[in-house]
Amino acid sequence: MSKVLITGGAGFIGSNLAHALVDNNEVVIVDDLSMGKKENISDIDVTFYQHDVCDSSFMHRLLSEGHFDYIFYLAAVSSVADSVVRPLETHLVNQESVLDTLEYIRQNNLPIKKFLFTSSAAVYGNYPDFPKREDARVQPLTPYAIDKYASERFTIDYNKLYGIPTVAVRFFNVYGPRQNPNSPYSGVLSIVSKCLKNDDTFVLYGDGSQTRDFVYVEDVVNALIKISHLKIASTVFNIANGKETSLMSIINTYETVSGKQLKVKKEDSRNGDIQRSIADISKLKKIGFEPRWSLVDGLQKYWSYYLSL
């Protein structure tokens, strides 16, 4: 049985990962609950610390005493808009804490099997190169994207320079159970779900033509676990579905799935918002991974989950 640390493990993706790992691993979670929720992990047997990953003395002690085999670094202020408003505060979480953890592992020769850092498709920016390959040009346009890109480079180069087994992934638009719809910075589909269920008005920033590559969280978790067990290191993978969908199109599909009409109020686009996004996932497929969830199937399962809350 392996010992696994998940930072941000009470959040949306982290809690789904914890559920997938807990039966065959000893799972430790660190989360300050600023975006995550304790109830996301209350039904599984994990060791939970409500703590800030920026507290280096706490993290150093945990890393020394934990003897972890795998570290999944998901802790982040996962909001582009929030990083524009609070660039320094979000930088401390999204970059400084990552580097501090890597450096402590290096200085103390901690014998981990894999350190996996979760980056974002936001690093690609608005360059007109589609679909986005991992070796494509990057154009981080916001503090969030800048920190994510810098942290993934630190992660990758800590393998090249110091031999620490590291890998990074770039999430595209992940959706599914345990997303927090009450956060103004949550994923768009969780907010749409809440508005559909409660007959609230959804605020659409832009004209709805902006596209995203939506991937169901179960596919994301399966990809994370597969990548973490690969012997390959010092590289980055896109995690996505490989399909491009406009926001208006997915809203229309979700209306069909839910049988409800969404009330929409249009506002101007926000600073830093990306107009178009689609991933090339051929690198992920080469390691034997195939997304299993279509958009319709994922939305149906997500809607059923959301109705049960």
Score class of each variant (00 low, 15 high):
Ser83Lys: 02
Asp100Ala: 14
Asp82His: 12
Val98Ser: 04
Leu62Glu: 01
Val53Arg: 01
Val93Thr: 15
Arg61Gln: 14
Asp69Asn: 14
Thr101Lys: 00
Thr118Trp: 01
Ser97Val: 06
Leu63Ala: 06
Val98Phe: 09
Arg86Met: 12
Met59Ser: 08
Ala76Asp: 07
Ser56Trp: 08
Leu116Arg: 01
Phe68Ala: 05
Ser57Gly: 02
Leu63Gly: 03
Asp55Arg: 02
Met59Gln: 04
Pro87Lys: 01
Leu74Thr: 03
Phe72Trp: 08
Leu62Phe: 03
Phe117Leu: 05
Phe68Ser: 03
Glu89Pro: 02
Ala81Glu: 14
His67Gly: 11
Leu74Gln: 13
Ser78Asp: 14
Ile105Gln: 02
Cys54Leu: 02
Val84Gly: 00
Leu110Met: 11
Ile71Leu: 14
Lys114Gln: 10
Met59His: 06
Leu62His: 00
Leu63Phe: 07
Leu92Asn: 11
Ser79Met: 08
Ser64Thr: 15
Asp100Gln: 12
Ala75Gln: 00
Gln107Asn: 13
Ser97Asp: 07
Val77Asn: 08
His60Lys: 15
Phe117Tyr: 15
Phe58Val: 11
Ala76Phe: 06
Arg61Leu: 12
Glu103Met: 13
Val85Leu: 14
Leu99His: 07
Ile105Ala: 05
His51Arg: 13
Thr101Tyr: 00
Met59Asp: 08
Leu88Arg: 13
Ser79Cys: 09
Lys113Ile: 06
Gln50Gly: 06
Pro87Glu: 11
Glu89Cys: 05
Leu99Ile: 12
His91Cys: 14
Ile105Thr: 04
Leu116Gln: 08
Leu88Lys: 11
Ser97Met: 04
Gln50Asn: 12
Leu62Ser: 01
Tyr73Cys: 04
Phe48Arg: 01
Leu63Val: 08
Leu92Ser: 09
Asn109Glu: 13
Tyr70Phe: 15
Thr118Asp: 02
Val80Cys: 10
Glu103Tyr: 09
Val98Asn: 04
Phe72Val: 03
Val46Ile: 15
Gly66Pro: 09
His51Tyr: 12
His60Ile: 07
Arg61Phe: 11
Val98Gly: 00
Ile71Phe: 04
Thr101Asn: 05
Thr90Lys: 06
Ser64Phe: 12
Leu116Asp: 01
Glu89Leu: 12
Leu74Asp: 08
Ile112Gln: 03
Phe117Ile: 02
Asp82Arg: 14
Tyr70Trp: 12
Asn108Gly: 07
Phe68Cys: 07
Lys113Gly: 06
Val85Arg: 13
Phe68Leu: 08
Glu65Met: 11
Ser97Phe: 06
Ser119Tyr: 04
Leu63Ile: 10
Pro111Thr: 10
Gln95Asp: 10
Ile71Cys: 08
Gln50Pro: 04
His91Lys: 14
Ser97Trp: 00
Val98Glu: 10
